[in-house]
Write a protein that binds this DNA or RNA. Structure first.
Length: 465
RNA sequence: GGCGACGUCGCCAAGUGGUAAGGCAAGGGUCUGCAAAACCCUUAUUCAUGGGUUCGAAUCCCAUCGUCGCCUCCA
């Protein structure tokens, strides 16, 4: 039984899907006008891990992620650069897809774009007007009528009166109520536009997700996800639109990831303190970012700095150490060496699942993984054979695979491998003659060149650092 | 000002009523020609602070202090 935290009810609830065995999951994607940053990576990783786990537990996951390719910021940036807004968004959609692939994130099963969903959006707005939940303003805008929606504010747990008290809203006279929000915006000169019953214009920010959800997944979905900065107004407005349109409850479970913290502050475009995914991956392996996310709780802020990244990287090395082959041969093995492994396999399997079943507690599950790593390494040290270790290593591969970790051995750039082998061969002779200074020189110089040499009883092994 | 989340070892962090997982760092040891890796041992009588409820609280309640997020574009 999987339990998950629902922002809507502020409680953990048992996952019961609309259709048995199928999870309909919609996760808000980016507005494509700039390089995606590690905060986007966190969110995408969180929902990738959730998706992979749901699949591991036997669910067929329909995963929709949208691209917002019609937006004020895209238009502004394109104008600054003197290029077509659609060319700009096309470029950043490609970039984002590449980022996700680099991060080993499974591609969504559907990736709708606003510009390709226009008929559905327009008919959605028409439906809301017909039902009295929206009204066209004289200037060609169409607004959602928040006062008509009785439970408006339920997701973000705020009341209309409280929101007005904030008084940070510029009241437009076109609106009936200050909190009414735009479903459709009349086009200004020089902007891209689509024809509609209310004149030329383009959709507001929130309506696209309602329309895409309806189009891709239907009136009701299981999980709706995104960053917790989207709770208000975006998701609040999405609920208002969709439930007003269909008259049915929209998403069963609302899941929100915490914000990535950079230097104690949320990283965001407006603050300008951004590390792009591309920049990150030039310095670190994609597994490091994933490990950082796994070590925390998806709902809590994630502390992103050199220290936490170093720790994540070291942890990964530790997991990889358990995947190294046995050192013993059949002759010197004993049954006792691996005697505890079968029981450990059961324990780990159970602990992993119990943790992940509890609101995707990856940090708890990771604890089980590390216990497993120690057990495997101990068995190897005790003289277990490869045949004895194999089932454990297979399970470790499976579980880390559910996490989406690649755990790839680092490889060299060219075909230096055979020359490194040769060096080690020579070094073995040198060591036989106990020429330690020369032997150590070779080891040190290889290390300077990113190759670690480890001497063992059965000879020396090497690997890239 | 309103709403919400959170404060657990030097750092990251799990644990939400039954007596503190795990990772990183640090110290000691085994192994090694020396290292490295791996393994073993050690490191929070204590969970921001002060009250309260309870046989029992890091876990529930109240207050205080502090941090962060949302209320405007944001994953």
């Amino acid at each position: 039984m999987i339990r998950l935290y629902n922002t809507l009810t502020r409680k953990k609830e048992e996952l019961q899907t609309i259709d048995p065995g199928v999870v309909k999951m919609y996760v808000c994607g980016p507005t494509v006008y700039n390089d995606a940053h590690v905060g986007h990576a966190m969110s995408s990783l969180v929902f990738d891990i959730i998706r992979r786990y749901l699949q591991y537990r036997g669910y067929d996951v329909q995963h929709v992620m949208n691209y917002t390719d019609v937006d004020d910021k895209i238009i502004r940036r394109a104008n600054e650069m003197g290029i077509d807004p659609f060319a700009l968004s096309r470029k950043y959609i490609q970039d984002f897809d590449q980022n996700l692939d680099d991060l080993n994130i499974l591609p969504a099963t559907a990736k709708p774009q606003v510009s390709k969903t226009m008929p559905q959006i327009i008919s959605f707005v028409e439906g809301l007007i017909q039902r009295g939940y929206a009204y066209p303003a004289p200037n060609g805008d169409v607004y959602f009528r928040v006062t008509k929606d009785e439970d408006y504010g339920k997701l973000s747990a705020r009341k209309l009166d409280d929101m007005q008290a904030g008084a940070r809203i510029e009241v437009e006279e076109q609106k009936e109520h200050p909190m009414d929000f735009a479903l459709w915006k009349a086009a200004k000169p020089g902007e891209p536009f689509w024809d509609s019953p209310w004149g030329q214009g383009r959709p507001g920010w929130h309506i696209e997700c309602s329309a895409m959800n309806l189009h891709e997944l239907g009136e009701q979905i299981d999980i709706h996800g995104g960053g917790n900065d989207l709770i208000f107004p975006h998701h609040e407005n999405e609920i208002a639109q969709t439930e007003s349109y269909t008259g049915k409850p929209f998403a069963r479970y609302w899941m929100h990831n915490g914000m990535l913290q950079l230097g104690g502050e949320k990283m965001s475009k407006s603050l300008g303190n951004i590390v792009s995914i591309k920049e990150f991956l030039e310095k670190r392996d994609s597994d490091v970012m994933r490990m950082l996310v796994l070590n925390g709780s998806y709902r809590a802020p994630l502390i992103f700095n050199e220290e936490t990244l170093d720790a994540a990287e070291k942890g990964l090395e530790r997991i990889k150490s358990a995947l190294r082959p046995a050192t013993a041969t059949g002759a010197d093995s004993t049954a006792e060496a691996a005697a505890s492994l079968p029981a450990t396999i059961q324990t780990v399997q159970t602990a992993f699942t119990e943790a992940m079943d509890d609101d995707f507690n990856s940090a708890g599950a990771l604890g089980a993984i590390f216990d497993f790593v120690r057990a495997i390494n101990s068995a190897r040290d005790a003289g277990a054979t490869q045949a004895q270790m194999q089932p454990a290593q297979d399970l470790l591969r499976t579980l880390t695979g559910v996490f989406g970790l690649r755990l790839a051995a680092k490889s060299g750039t060219g075909d230096a491998d055979k020359f490194i082998d040769l060096l080690l061969e020579v070094r073995a002779e040198v060591r036989k003659q106990k020429l330690w200074a020369l032997s150590d020189l070779i080891r040190d110089r290889l290390k300077e060149n990113g190759v670690s040499v480890e001497d063992g009883k059965q000879g020396s092994a090497w690997r890239y650092l």
